[in-house]
Structure formats: structure tokens, C-alpha cells
Amino acid sequence: MDSEKTSIGPNMSDTDTPTGNSAARHNWLTRIWHWLNLLCLVTLLMSGLTIFNAHPRLYWGDSGNVHDHAWAAVASGPDDAYIRIGETIIPSTGFMGHWRDDQGRIQNWAFPSWATIPGYYDLAAGRRWHLFFAWIFSIGLACFMLASLINRHVQRDLHMQRDNWRPAILWRSVKTHAKGQFLHSEGGAIYNPLQKLSYILIIFVALPLMIATGLAMSPQMNAAWPWLPEIFGGRQSARSVHFIIAAALVAFTVLHIALVLVSRPIWLVKAMTIGQKRLSAENKS
């Protein structure tokens, strides 16, 4: 990829590129939404793990309980614990299902206190955190989707052009990533095809699915919209899908942060925050 053409972030010009001197910044809406999402992701994930701890078993179908087969479960005993996924057993003594709290006491909750909100088991509090930030998250997502369609951020920057779908182009993008060059794009676009694809999948598929599967677990919503749990194959399937996508979002976030760190962390963080300032430390070098 031609390095002069590499760019990230809107309003690109030569000086706005990662190899240029100044950092362009994203639209204010994108920036606010990005950090609001971080807050929501962390609180929703960690309070969600508190709720999961109340019943650390996942099922397929309409119903499922201790007497039914769980496709995934955390099993804890007095001496040890393990995670079971399908028929695969992963010993988890020490970090899940059997761990010591900061007072040295053995705890048998699936996820340890550092991973949950609150840091002690309180299902009612976990649910309050979860359902409060679910509102913030859902309203934020709806506003962002609407605004980025209106201001054409989606059509301009995220839209996968027909070219982008060509296997050869996608493969080249994979190869470029594999070589450690992450800030490349195709045909003068802001994002490369893999970036576009992952952002679209996250914003328009994964995040809305989190809301839909979350609502599908609500008995009152089930009465209002009986088709909602059915599209996921039942309430317990919706709960499983909710958990699987949550895990995928964690993976996305880890990868996202890792790519920022190995690319140009300061430049990229500035693009998502204050932007437009000179990167003085890098200029002096």
C-alpha cells in the first residue's frame, strides 16, 4: 500500500494522515458516542456478569434450568471448579467458580469480584446497573445510527463499496494486516475493507442484537412482542446469544485496543478526543 495514501479519520488530507504531523479528529458525535460506549460497555459487561453469576448456566430453547442440559456452565465444588462448554471441560480453579476474595475467603461465584459490578454478589444492584446503562446505551446507539445516516458518515466512510467485497481485495487487506500494517485503506477511503466490515458488523448487527436479545428475556416484553424470543429460538436461546455476543464484543474491544496500541496510539486517541493539536513529542524526534 502506498504510504502517502494511507489515512484514517474523516477530513483527511496529507497532514491528517497517521504519517503526517497533525491529527484529524472525528466528528463530535462519533467522539462522544465512542466514549459513552466505553462507559456502557464496561458497566453493562460487568453488571451482566453479576447477573450471570446468579445462574452460571446457558441453554438452548424456550426454557432451561438446573434439571436440564446446559450447553455451557461453570460448575463449582468445595475444592475446585471447572468451565464446561459442550463436552469440553476447562479447569478454572483459582479464577472462576472457586477463587479467593480479598479477605482470603473461598468464593464459588462464577466470575470473580474484579470482573463484576458490584464487586460483591448483589443481584438486585447488578440488575439496576445493567438496566440503567442499557437505556443510556440504547438511546446512544439509536442517536448515533440516525445521525451517522443523516450526516452520511455511514454512506461515506463505512459503506462497503462493491469493490470492497471482492475476495482479492479482502484477502489483500488480511495480508496487509498480517504484515503489521493496520492504517491502510483502499482506493482513498478512510477505512480499509476489514475495518469497514467490522465496524458495520458491530454497529448495525452486534449492538442491536444485544438490545434485542436483552429484551427477549423480559416476560412483559414477551407478552407485548411474542415474536421477539421466537426469532432467537426461545428465551433461553436469546440469553445464550446475549452472552455469546457479549463475549464477541469483549474480543472486539481487546483487538481494537491492541490495534490502536500497535499502530499509532497517541495519534489515534487524539483523533477520538481533542484532535487538531500538534503531536509535539513526535515532531521533535
Binding site: I51, F52, G64, V66, R127, N222
Partner: peptide
């Protein structure tokens, strides 16, 4: 379907 606050269900 009976939905427990803990997350499980039974019919």
C-alpha cells in the same frame, strides 16, 4: 414459561 430473576426458565 416461568422466568426466574436468576436467569433460568421452566415451563
Amino acid at each position: 414459561r416461568h422466568d426466574c430473576v436468576e436467569g433460568w426458565s421452566a415451563i
